[in-house]
């Protein structure tokens, strides 16, 4: 079994990088109660790729259309900035409704564009991803994106935490709350746009939510939540991936199932902690 897994070790390394980056950002996503923002941004990124493929199929090959990643990034970051600025709340639309509209519209646009793209792949690729297809070059790209983002989060932890926890107080103390908020969403958009291309919308969404929920259930401090979130994401990625290869299961859902199992195990552990 190990030999079979080792055949796909490059893909596993890529999955681990995605797991770490997404689970760290996921702590903010869960604590700020914006879990579906992650799904909407991922879906926007996939719509960007679909548009690039559609334009490529139409023969529009000049400029950026030959670079789906650029489209994914542009769409993902545009979505992140939009949600970072309030996501239409100023127009009176509830934030969760805006997220829902964005998700549905982006998903539909992606399917329609792919359906008419001559060189398009199946839309399932965007939803489920293709973890096994990750190469060493892909992993290096993921590292090149994830390491600076994680460094930013280490350096500006205090600021991200403050504007997330109590933005009124932060504003009163002279913090540029809108800037820090946008900066946080920018890092989120960046990681999602790249991770989605390899892991798919559902797996990225999983890494943004379930490990952080496990952390929230088991840990009693911010450091503890980050540690448990990253640890459980890595564990789920390793176990899920290792089981999926020899048993011929789709890797993404196998990893998600492991994440869900860890979160479910954390639940009674939390109850026991409370009783103790």
């Amino acid at each position: 079994m190990l030999d079979t897994v080792l055949l796909f070790r490059e893909a596993l390394y890529g999955a681990l990088v995605i797991a770490v980056a997404c689970s760290v950002l996921g702590v903010y996503v869960v604590l700020r109660r914006i879990v579906f923002v992650g799904a909407a941004i991922a879906q926007l990124s996939s719509a960007g790729i679909a548009l690039a493929l559609f334009l490529g199929g139409m023969g529009v090959t000049s400029g950026l259309t030959g670079h789906p990643t650029a489209f994914a990034l542009a769409f993902g970051l545009a979505g992140a900035m939009f949600f970072g600025l309030g996501g239409g709340s100023r127009a009176g639309v509830p934030p969760d409704a805006t997220i829902g509209v964005t998700y549905a519209a982006a998903a539909a646009a992606g399917v329609l564009l792919i359906a008419k793209a001559k060189s398009g792949e199946a839309h399932d690729i965007f939803l489920q991803g293709n973890i096994l297809g990750i190469t060493r070059a892909d992993t290096l790209v993921l590292l090149a994106v994830s390491i600076p983002v994680l460094l930013v989060h280490i350096l500006f932890y205090k600021e991200f935490l403050f504007v997330s926890f109590d933005r009124e107080m932060a504003r009163t103390m002279g913090y540029r709350v809108t800037f820090w908020n946008l900066f946080l969403y920018f890092t989120l958009g960046l990681v999602i746009a790249f991770a989605m291309q390899f892991a798919g919308v559902i797996l990225v969404f999983n890494f943004l939510v379930l490990p952080a929920v496990t952390g929230l259930l088991l840990a009693r401090s911010m450091a503890g939540i980050f540690t448990v979130a990253v640890g459980s994401a890595l564990l789920a990625a390793c176990v899920g991936f290792s089981l999926s290869v020899p048993f011929d299961l789709p890797s993404g859902p196998a990893i998600i199932a492991c994440s869900a199992a860890l979160a479910l195990l954390a639940w009674p552990a939390r109850l026991l902690q409370r009783r103790g």
Partner: peptide, 25 residues
């Protein structure tokens, strides 16, 4: 500044001391 209690998100697992130190950020 002491904001309205409800404006603070108590879902964050922060110790009292950590929250108080925010006043010196």
């Amino acid at each position: 500044y002491v904001p309205q209690r409800d404006s603070v998100d108590y879902n964050f697992p922060l110790k009292v001391l950590d929250v108080v130190m925010m006043g010196r950020y």
